Computed example of a mutant assay.
Amino acid sequence: MIRIELAPETLDDIDRFIDHLARHKIVDAAARVQEILEAIQILSRSPLIGRPVRDGKRELVVGKDSRGYVALYRCF
């Protein structure tokens, strides 16, 4: 199984995301964060699941429509 390391700035991204959800009074903010973290865990089993973008990076699309997010990552 592949190990996943989150970049230090990821915590800042999550904080900004939670603040955004709070400002817009989204009631299931914790569930949305959990959904993103669970999707990232899928990368430990299927690291090439995301579509290739640039500079050796890939992006994993999590959710859809207004609940859609993109996680940018790189396989080493």
Rank of each mutant, 00 (worst) to 15 (best):
A39N: 01
L37T: 05
V27I: 12
I49G: 13
P52R: 14
I40M: 09
I42Q: 14
A39I: 00
I42G: 10
H20P: 02
P8R: 10
K57T: 07
Y69H: 02
L72G: 04
I36Q: 11
C75M: 09
Q41R: 13
K25D: 15
L48P: 06
C75R: 09
A39M: 05
S46P: 01
R58D: 04
D15R: 07
F17P: 01
M1S: 14
A31T: 08
V70M: 06
P8W: 09
V61C: 03
G56K: 02
A39H: 00
L37C: 13
R32H: 14
F76C: 09
D28A: 01
R23C: 07
L72I: 02
L60N: 01
L6V: 10
Y73K: 00
D13S: 06
T10H: 06
F17M: 14
D12W: 00
R67V: 12
L48N: 05
A31S: 03
G68M: 08
G68D: 02
S44F: 05
E38M: 13
Y73V: 00
D13G: 12
I42A: 14
Y69S: 07
K64C: 05
I14K: 02
Y73Q: 04
I40L: 12
G63H: 08
D12Q: 09
D19C: 04
D19F: 01
T10Y: 12
V53I: 10
H20I: 05
S46M: 09
I4Y: 00
R23P: 03
L43W: 02
R74I: 00
H20Q: 10
D28T: 03
Y73E: 01
R3D: 07
K64W: 03
R16P: 03
H20L: 06
T10V: 12
F76D: 15
H20Y: 15
R23K: 08
F17S: 15
P8Q: 15
C75A: 14
G68L: 03
A31L: 04
I2A: 15
K25T: 10
R67N: 15
V70Y: 09
G68P: 07
L72H: 09
H20D: 05
I2M: 15
V61A: 14
L6D: 11
L11N: 14
A29R: 07
E35D: 13
R74P: 03
V70W: 09
L37M: 11
A22K: 10
P52D: 13
I40R: 04
L72P: 08
S46E: 04
P52L: 07
S66E: 15
E35V: 00
L37W: 11
R51P: 00
A39L: 03
V33Q: 02
K64A: 11
A7V: 00
G50M: 01
Q41V: 04
R51K: 06
K64G: 05
R58F: 04
H24W: 14
I42M: 13
V62F: 07
A39E: 02
R67M: 09
A7Q: 04
L60W: 08
Y73H: 02
S66L: 11
R23L: 13
L21F: 06
V53Y: 02
V27K: 15
S46C: 01
M1D: 11
A22S: 12
R67L: 11
I42T: 14
K57W: 09
R3I: 02
L21N: 03
